[in-house]
Amino acid sequence: MSNLDNLTSKIIEDAKKKADNIIAEAKEKESQIIEKKKKEAEKSSQNVIEKANLEGKNLFDRAISKTELKVRNEKLVAKQTVINKVFNEAVKELNAMNKEQFLSYVKEQIKSLPISGEQNIIVASKDKEKITSEFLNELNGELKNAKIILSEETREINGGFILSKDGIEINCSFADVIDSLRYDLENEVANMLFD
């Protein structure tokens, strides 16, 4: 029996060693799996943090760009408002001319235009009495191929005049003259005002 007991003991001992080895291997694998999952979780959390930081930076950069663009646009609107006031003031200054200055302006403008034949001069009702027959005679005496006649018609223009012949008009109202000069002068005016 002792052989049987020894054999049984040996089998049990071997089985116990094998079980201990299996348990040790399982614990080792468990530790490896846990360590691997920890590293994956750390890497994943690091990726999430990096992505969140990048998204946060992008949102911040976009907010800054949007604000800078808004400020730039507001500056442009403010500058344009000032420039508009300058050109509106120019029209007011032209309207403030006395009769002699106004007639001198009309004469010089008409003489500079490539006109011929009979032209009707149309003015605002406030300027109608300034255009006298003496003025027209003097002006017509200086023109080579054209004759200016005061039209009965008046227009709602802010100073200046309009020449009309056969339905074709040349607009020399102050506002129109300033608008035509504006394209060429706007940059110069902006540089004078804002540099």
Rank of each mutant, 00 (worst) to 15 (best):
M1V: 09
L4K: 08
D5R: 13
N6W: 12
N6C: 01
L7F: 13
T8A: 08
K10I: 09
K10G: 11
I11P: 03
I12H: 07
N21Y: 07
A24Y: 09
E30S: 12
S31G: 08
I33Q: 08
I33N: 10
I34V: 15
I34C: 02
K38G: 08
E40H: 03
K43T: 13
K43N: 11
S44Y: 10
S44E: 13
V48G: 05
A52W: 08
A52R: 10
A52S: 11
N53M: 10
K57C: 01
R62W: 03
R62K: 15
I64Q: 09
S65H: 01
L69W: 02
K70A: 13
K70E: 15
R72D: 13
R72G: 05
R72K: 15
E74M: 08
K75D: 08
K75Q: 10
V77M: 06
V77Q: 10
V82L: 14
N84A: 10
N84E: 12
N84Y: 05
K85D: 14
V86H: 00
V86P: 00
V91K: 02
V91G: 01
N95L: 06
Q101C: 02
F102C: 03
F102P: 02
L103C: 04
Y105E: 12
V106A: 13
K107E: 15
I110A: 05
K111G: 04
S116G: 07
G117I: 03
I122F: 02
I122Y: 03
I122M: 04
V123Y: 03
S125F: 05
S125C: 02
K128P: 00
E134W: 00
E134F: 07
F135C: 05
L136I: 12
N137D: 14
N137W: 00
L139A: 04
E142L: 11
E142Q: 15
N145L: 07
K147D: 06
I148M: 07
I149E: 09
S151V: 00
E152S: 14
I162V: 15
S164P: 00
K165H: 06
K165F: 00
G167C: 06
I168Y: 11
E169K: 13
N171K: 06
N171E: 06
N171I: 06
A175Q: 11
V177S: 05
I178M: 07
R182I: 01
Y183V: 13
L185R: 02
V189G: 06
M192R: 11
F194G: 05
